[in-house]
Nucleic acid binder design. Structure first.
Length: 443
RNA sequence: GCCGGGGUGGCUCAGUGGUACAGCGCCAGACUUGAGAUCUGGUUCCCUUGGUGGAUCGGGAGUUCGAAUCUCUCCCCCGGCGCCA
């Protein structure tokens, strides 16, 4: 959530931020109105309680000295009835106050392009030599501001065909038992996945990240604090009869790990590499990417997460972006970095870079990773601070994908399949133990 | 799941209905050449922040003039039993 004191002092900042996000900024006026009513009530409640407390003390003294307390008790009763009324009123006011404040998004960083639609994300930079079909060249060049290098190819392969031909997947039977967007991973594809996970864990360990696997379920309250309404509604599975949700990313349990803690300044930054299963409802994605394992209800992901001092977060955003780029470079997957425009940004992020890989068969760049700086927005909801003599300071949090294993496998299959053979990126061979996946010579 | 013991400031803990003890740690100041020791103040949150203001003793509800304390309920931790990869 946002800083309420800052909102009171400087609502203009929030009007502008919401306007740029194409959101209804009149809720700010509504908030200020209801907040002032809440504060008025709170003052009154405090005054009445103060009176009650002092009379209670007098009763205590009289009880000890054996004096009569009946009229003092009556006085307290009348204070209590007034108090009751105002407190009840304040409960509903506070409910609305909290509801509204949770809808106010983070303050937009000033380099975020103000626009709607993914097609208006701003190209930042690109890398790699893409395999591009003739009919996709225009799209490729447009997507890279004319700077993209490529080789023209005649033929591309869908990852679904490749997986089926090479006996790497069983989609039909998964659908039979679990429904759409589930899959059995088989044979060398499973080994490739494990290799990607091991590679990612090593990559982050070597760069000062402690690596963890979080609990795959967290309580609803924690989900609420770690993310926003949109994510909760569209992505999160709830466990029936339990107050638990399946995580949609390790970001949430990792962020919440330090909930309600006061850190020492010298403990920061804390860099965490998280490996976890991710469960997503994909509500609202009907009809999109229905084939294969590009968009599924269950996948695994290696995530980067940083808790840091406020003054360091923009530097760390660059570091996270660089890390993900290095991983893609090491796999030789062509990619571009885009600065996600204001209309497509989630409420938590002040700024977000998407890193999109080139998918030759789809003929376009698709999201592989997403790096966000949430500033103090997420940490404030989770109440994570560091100790400071003049008042403890809310820290900053950042998150970014390192390796989305399923989607990365799609990228590898689309980019490196030739004559029915999948070629494994060189850096992964020590992890897979094989350099190709082909029909013959399977394990 | 059952039985028992617990949950109190950053930590260890006292507190069986009447203003939340104490110790340790940490921060600041004083003293000191410096460090240590010592002393003083501070070390959760809220409010038109300085006021002999309010809240807070795992969460929520209740009884009471008044609840850390009594009642109900939920959560979590420890031990034992049961089950078990």
């Amino acid at each position: 959530m946002i800083d309420i004191r800052l909102l009171r002092e400087n609502p203009q900042v929030f009007y502008e931020s919401m306007k740029k996000r194409f959101q209804d900024y009149t809720i700010i006026d509504r908030f200020l109105e209801i907040d002032s009513r809440w504060r008025e009530n709170t003052r009154e409640i405090n005054t009445l309680r103060s009176q009650r407390n002092s009379i209670s003390l007098q009763i205590s003294a009289r009880v000890k000295s054996g004096e009569d307390t009946a009229n003092l008790k009556d006085e307290v009763r009348s204070i209590n009835s007034k108090l009751d009324e105002i407190e009840k009123d304040n409960v509903s006011i506070e409910e609305e106050r909290v509801k509204i404040v949770n809808r106010i998004p983070n303050i937009l960083e000033n380099t975020v392009p103000v626009n709607k639609g993914d097609e208006n994300n701003a190209f930042v930079r690109g890398n790699g030599i893409a395999r591009v079909r003739k009919e996709d060249i225009e799209e490729y060049l447009k997507s890279t501001n004319g700077t993209g290098k490529y080789v023209e190819v005649k033929e591309t392969f869908s990852h679904v065909d490749t997986m089926e031909k090479l006996n790497l997947i069983d989609l039909e039977r998964a659908t039979k038992i679990s429904g759409a967007r589930f899959y059995f991973t088989k044979n060398r594809l499973l080994k490739l996945e494990l290799a990607l996970i091991n590679y990612g864990v090593d990559f982050l360990s070597e760069r000062g990240f402690s690596v963890i696997e979080p609990p795959p379920m967290i309580s609803s309250e924690v989900v609420w604090k770690a993310t926003d309404q949109a994510t909760f509604d569209d992505a999160i599975y709830k466990i029936e009869g339990e107050n638990l949700c399946l995580i949609s990313t390790s970001e949430h349990p990792i962020a919440a790990m330090l909930m309600n803690e006061i850190l020492e300044k010298n403990e920061l930054p804390i860099k965490v590499g998280g490996f976890s299963p991710c469960y997503r409802k994909e509500a609202g994605a009907h009809g999109k990417d229905t084939k294969g394992i590009f968009r599924v209800h269950y996948f695994k992901k290696i995530e980067q997460f940083i808790f840091c001092k406020p003054e360091d977060s923009w530097d760390f955003m660059d570091e996270l972006t660089e890390n993900t780029e290095k991983i893609l470079q090491s796999f030789e997957i062509p990619y571009r970095v885009v600065n996600v425009c204001s209309g497509e940004l989630g409420n938590l992020a002040a700024k977000k870079y998407d890193i999109e890989g080139w998918f030759p068969n789809q003929g376009k760049f698709r999201e592989l990773a997403s790096i966000s700086n949430d500033l103090d927005y997420q940490a404030r909801s989770l109440n994570i601070r560091y100790r400071n003599p003049d008042g403890n300071i809310t820290i900053h949090t950042l998150n970014g994908t390192a390796i989305p294993t399923e989607r990365m496998m799609v990228a590898i299959m689309e980019n490196f399949t030739e004559n029915g053979v999948i070629h494994i990126p060189k850096v992964l061979i020590p992890y897979t133990g094989f350099d190709t996946i082909q029909v013959q010579g399977e394990d």
